[in-house]
Simulated assay, not measured.
Amino acid sequence: MKVEWKGVMPAVTTKFNEDDTLDLIMFAKNIRAQIDAGVHGIVLGGSLGEASTLLAEEKNVLIRETVQLSEGKIPVVMTIAEQATKVAIAAASDAHENGADALMILPPMRYKSTDIETVQYFKDIASSTDLPIMIYNNPVDYKIEVTVDMFEELLELDNITAVKESTRDIINIGRLRNRFGERLSILTGVDPLALESLFMGADGWVAGLVCAFPEETVAIYELAKAGRPKEATEIYRWFLPLLELDISPQLVQNIKLAEVATGIGTETVRKPRLNLSGDERKRVLKVIEEGLKTRPILPDYKSF
Rank of each mutant, 00 (worst) to 15 (best):
I125K: 01
I264D: 04
L176N: 00
Y121A: 02
W205I: 06
I74A: 11
A81K: 05
L242P: 00
E222D: 11
E231L: 08
S70K: 12
E145W: 00
L243T: 06
E222Q: 13
L242I: 09
A92V: 10
K271T: 15
N275A: 14
I255M: 11
L245F: 06
R237P: 04
F180H: 04
L209H: 11
A261P: 04
G201F: 11
G278W: 13
T13Q: 11
A100W: 03
I186G: 01
R64E: 15
I35F: 05
D36M: 09
V260N: 07
L55Y: 14
P299R: 07
A226M: 08
N159Y: 07
A37V: 02
V39G: 02
N138Q: 06
D94Q: 15
A81I: 08
R270G: 09
V218W: 04
M26K: 13
I173L: 03
A102H: 03
S93Q: 15
A56F: 13
T114P: 02
K282A: 15
E58Y: 11
R179L: 05
L242C: 02
I42F: 05
T114W: 03
P132L: 01
I173F: 00
L243I: 07
H96M: 15
A88K: 06
V206K: 04
E289T: 13
I105D: 01
A207P: 06
L276F: 09
D158L: 12
N137I: 01
K286V: 09
L292Q: 07
I160F: 03
E259A: 10
S93L: 14
A91L: 12
L193D: 00
F27K: 06
R270S: 13
P296H: 06
D36N: 12
Y301N: 01
G291I: 03
L55W: 14
G45I: 01
I288W: 02
V119I: 13
A194D: 06
T13Y: 08
P272T: 10
E290R: 12
I186Q: 00
D101I: 06
T167E: 00
S93A: 15
I105R: 01
N17Q: 12
G227Q: 08
S277R: 15
T266L: 14
I135H: 01
D300S: 12
S70P: 11
V260T: 10
G189T: 02
R32Y: 09
I42P: 00
I186P: 00
G7N: 10
M104G: 05
V67Y: 10
I247T: 12
D203Y: 05
T85H: 10
V190S: 05
P139W: 00
P75V: 10
T14S: 09
I135Y: 00
A11T: 09
G263M: 09
G72H: 12
R32D: 09
P272H: 12
L155E: 03
R228N: 12
P272M: 11
V206Q: 07
R64H: 12
M78T: 11
M134A: 07
A261T: 08
A56T: 14
T13C: 13
R177N: 07
I74E: 07
I135T: 03
M1A: 15
M104R: 06
L240T: 05
S277K: 15
